[in-house]
C-alpha cells in the first residue's frame, strides 16, 4: 500500500515537473511569431489600405491592426536609419513630408529588399500595427515577390 502511494506521488511529481517545463517553454518563453511564414489575413494593394486608414482611421484600425497583410505597391525608397531597414511606399505629400505605408523589414530579409530598385512593383508581408496620422506602419516584414 505504502509503495503504491509512493509510486503515485512520484508519478504526480513527475507529471507536475513535465507540466512546469512545458508551460515554461511553450507559454512563458514561447517564441515570437515568424511573420515571414505566417499566412496573410488580407492580400491587397497597399494604396487601398492607406486610403482606408486615411478616410476612416477608426474603422480601418479595427479591421487591420494586429493582422498580417500582404501588400503590393511601387517601392518608393528603402531607408536605413540606425540598424533598421524600412521600405517605403509613398502616396501623398503631407505635414511630415511623404505619406504612405512604411514596412520595417526583418533583418534576415533586409538584403533582398535593399536589392530591389526603387520604382519596382513588389509585394511585402508583415504585421500591421496601425496608422499614425501620416503612415500605415507595418512591422516584421519580408519580401513576398
Amino acid at each position: 500500500m505504502k509503495r503504491k502511494i509512493l509510486t503515485a506521488g512520484a508519478a504526480l511529481a513527475g507529471l507536475g515537473l513535465i507540466t512546469g517545463i512545458l508551460v515554461y517553454f511553450f507559454l512563458f518563453n514561447k517564441p515570437h511569431t515568424d511573420y515571414s511564414k505566417a499566412e496573410a489575413d488580407f492580400e491587397m494593394k497597399a494604396i487601398a489600405v492607406f486610403e482606408e486608414f486615411r478616410t476612416n482611421p477608426e474603422l480601418a484600425s479595427g479591421k487591420y491592426n494586429g493582422k498580417v497583410l500582404s501588400l503590393t505597391g511601387e517601392l518608393t525608397a528603402v531607408e536605413q536609419p540606425d540598424s533598421l531597414t524600412i521600405a517605403v511606399f509613398s502616396y501623398e505629400e503631407g505635414m511630415f513630408g511623404s505619406e504612405g505605408v512604411r514596412f520595417t523589414i526583418l533583418t534576415e530579409h533586409a538584403g533582398s529588399v535593399i536589392a530591389v530598385a526603387p520604382g519596382s512593383t513588389v509585394t511585402l508581408k508583415g504585421l500591421c500595427t496601425g496608422y499614425n496620422e501620416t503612415d500605415v506602419i507595418m512591422e516584421h516584414c519580408s519580401l513576398v515577390k
Binding site: 512563458f28 517564441p31 515570437h32 494586429g66 500595427t129 496601425g130
Partner: peptide, 11 residues
C-alpha cells in the same frame, strides 16, 4: 503606435 513596441518575450 502601441502595437509597435517590441518585447523580448512574446507572452
Amino acid at each position: 503606435l502601441m502595437k509597435s513596441f517590441q518585447f523580448e518575450k512574446a507572452l
